[in-house]
Structure formats: structure tokens, C-alpha cells
């Protein structure tokens, strides 16, 4: 089950975070997503050190957090997408597809002339669209 999705900006500021877990655990997901930025940095550092070019936006499993798994995806403009799931047996391909759809939704919302890039996303339409993507993933 997808418990939380988030978008983090270039300055590591949160742009969007939606929890599907309910209850009082929302704050916990904020901590999980924030800590996952360390792994983004670690992966970027490894790539720099080895001189490898990142051809794939999907970074795979970032780290497990107690009962969850945290996956990451980074756009070419260093915007980060994070997925927190409680399903421990997910296939990478499914998650990658999810991120691509999530990314497409993000592109659409930032293409809105009334949206200022870099600002928090507060669009209700985007929220509904993310919810649809998550539910179509069969996890909601």
C-alpha cells in the first residue's frame, strides 16, 4: 500500500506531500521523506565520484524505514519524488511506472501559467490526480 508521496524542490524544500495512511502518522512521513534526501545526496555523491552519468531518473529503493520502504526518483532539474510504501514486495518496474506518471502530473501542474516554479503545489486538481494515480496503482 502506498502510504505517502512527496515532491521535494531543488533547494530540498517540500513542494508537495500527500499521505494516504490517515491517523496521526503524517508527521512521521515528513521525517521519512526529509531523511530520504540524505540518500539522494549519497547517490549523487557516488555518481560524481565514479564519474557515472545518471541515465535513469528512477533511483530505486532509497532505504527501508521500520515497516516501510522508501523509493526515489529525480528529474533532470533536481526535483525529487519520493514514495513511501508498506508493501515490501513491490516490483521496481511498477514503481518506475508510477513515478513516470507522477512526474507527468507534476509537469502538467507546473505548466499552469498561474503556477510559479519552485513554489509549493496547492492545486486541488493535482491532488486529485495524484490520488487517482495512487489508486490506479491498486494500492489505495
Amino acid at each position: 500500500m502506498i502510504l505517502c508521496v512527496a515532491i521535494v524542490g531543488q533547494q530540498n524544500n517540500p513542494l508537495y506531500l500527500q499521505s494516504f495512511a490517515g491517523g496521526d502518522d503524517v508527521l512521521k512521513f515528513h521525517y521519512i521523506v526529509h531523511c530520504s534526501l540524505d540518500v539522494f545526496d549519497e547517490k549523487a555523491s557516488i555518481l560524481r565520484r565514479t564519474g557515472t552519468n545518471l541515465n535513469d531518473n528512477f533511483l530505486g529503493l532509497l532505504y527501508p524505514a521500520e515497516d516501510y520502504k522508501v523509493y526515489g526518483y529525480m528529474t533532470n532539474t533536481r526535483v525529487k519524488f519520493v514514495l513511501v510504501t508498506s508493501d515490501l514486495e513491490l516490483k521496481d518496474l511498477d514503481i518506475k511506472t508510477f513515478f513516470q506518471r507522477f512526474h507527468a502530473a507534476y509537469i502538467d501542474v507546473t505548466s499552469n501559467p498561474f503556477h510559479v516554479p519552485g513554489k509549493r503545489i496547492a492545486s486541488p486538481m493535482f491532488r486529485d490526480r495524484v490520488k487517482t494515480i495512487v489508486s490506479s496503482f491498486g494500492q489505495l
Binding site: Y31, H34, C35, L37, D38, D41, E42, S45
Partner: peptide, 13 residues
């Protein structure tokens, strides 16, 4: 020993 700065802050919390 790692670069996990944010995790260290979370531990601080």
C-alpha cells in the same frame, strides 16, 4: 561516519 546529516538531525529530534 556517513553523510546522513538529516538523519542525524532526526536522531536529535
Amino acid at each position: 561516519a556517513t553523510q546522513a546529516t538529516r538523519m542525524i538531525y532526526y536522531l536529535g529530534t
